[in-house]
Nucleic acid binder design. Structure first.
Length: 311
DNA sequence: AATACGTTCAACCGCTACTCG
DNA sequence: ACGAGTAGCGGTTGAACGTAT
């Protein structure tokens, strides 16, 4: 028995959506919420494939989607994130408030890829220099941003995709010490072990000391530094990091991954305490450490990274 | 004004990861 | 453990629009 097709494709509308179809879908999602996309066309009375409904909602109709041109800041962010993450559009989109993966992918393919082909990532350096100048003068900085026609602040939430929801790594301090001892191997903890349980219990009363990390961000922050700051065993750990992000670790390992100490060192011993504070998580294990980050914060963090690259 | 060519971006397609029974 | 169903991802397509000739 084969898989049931997502739709019969017979008698269905294709191509651009009409305003009427949009309204129907918006009203349906308002009333019933997202999900069960296969059932949406029938229940909402749309002659569309469920997949098409989902795409239309996620990429166009969602209320938190930001319309309009990509700002200079956003463009810079896209370039930096692409440099570090490659064509993982949903990951990139997950860190740019109000933008969808499709939009960023299109923008990259039409605007940025050619520039990168011509100039390489040199444009990042130019952009960085420009920012250094404007940072010296807050007034001129705001002018710079206003000059783009974009608001300097917005309240759009991040368009969250599946990959944004994935694992946080929780690093008890004691475990990190253990990792220091075993630096030549990647430590995948057994979360049921007595040692881990006791370590976790010890730190429950001291939640400020806990340090949740989003492995994607770790990857983002450390990838260009491995040559300059790591010795060979640390490099091995980094490879494991990258393999994990590339999906070469199994699911269990992904969910339980502990960032190698060298990676955390970069976060902790980075430029200043503010950087660490920026990444300090909420104390809830299921919370998402980056929710509070706005575009400026992320941009400034990436600038810190550039300082490392440039120096 | 007509046509060709280039660009943009919404939508589609095929695949994979994940979930659930 | 397995298989079917679902959600989501990234690559690709093609219609609409803009610009050059």
């Amino acid at each position: 028995m084969g898989r049931r097709p997502c739709c019969t494709k017979e008698g269905l509308n294709r191509g651009a959506w009409s305003a009427r179809e949009d309204n129907i879908l918006i009203n349906y999602v308002k009333a019933h919420g997202e999900g069960k996309w296969r059932d949406v066309p029938e229940r909402a009375g749309l002659k569309r494939c469920g997949k098409s409904c989902r795409l239309r909602w996620l990429n166009y109709l969602r209320p938190d989607i930001k319309r309009g041109n990509i700002s200079v800041e956003e463009e810079e962010l896209i370039i930096r994130l692409h440099k570090l993450l490659g064509n993982r559009w949903s990951l990139i989109a997950g860190r740019i408030p109000g933008r969808t993966d499709n939009e960023i992918k299109n923008y990259w393919n039409t605007h940025l890829s050619r520039r990168i082909m011509q100039d390489g990532y040199k444009i990042l350096q130019d952009s960085y220099n420009k920012q250094l100048i404007t940072d010296d003068d807050e007034g001129s900085r705001s002018e710079f941003i206003q000059g783009t026609g974009q608001e300097t602040h917005d309240d759009h939430s991040v368009v969250r995709t599946k990959e944004m929801r994935c694992s946080n790594a929780f690093i008890p301090k004691q475990l990190d010490i253990e990792m220091e001892k075993n630096a030549s191997t990647l430590v995948i903890p057994d979360w049921g072990s007595d040692q881990i349980r006791s370590s976790l219990a010890q730190q429950e009363d001291n939640s400020d000391e806990n340090f949740l990390m989003d492995y994607v961000v770790n990857d983002l922050l450390m990838s260009d530094h491995k040559l300059s700051c790591l010795d060979s065993h640390q490099d091995k750990e980094l490879n494991e990091c990258e393999n994990m992000v590339d999906g070469e670790m199994d699911h269990h390992a992904k969910n339980n991954y502990i960032m190698p100490s060298c990676c955390e060192d970069f976060l902790v011993s980075g430029h200043d305490q503010a950087m660490r504070e920026n990444w300090r998580p909420q104390t809830e294990p299921n919370s998402q450490p980056n929710d509070a980050l706005d575009l400026k914060t992320l941009t400034s963090l990436l600038n810190l990274e550039d300082e490392w690259i440039i120096s």
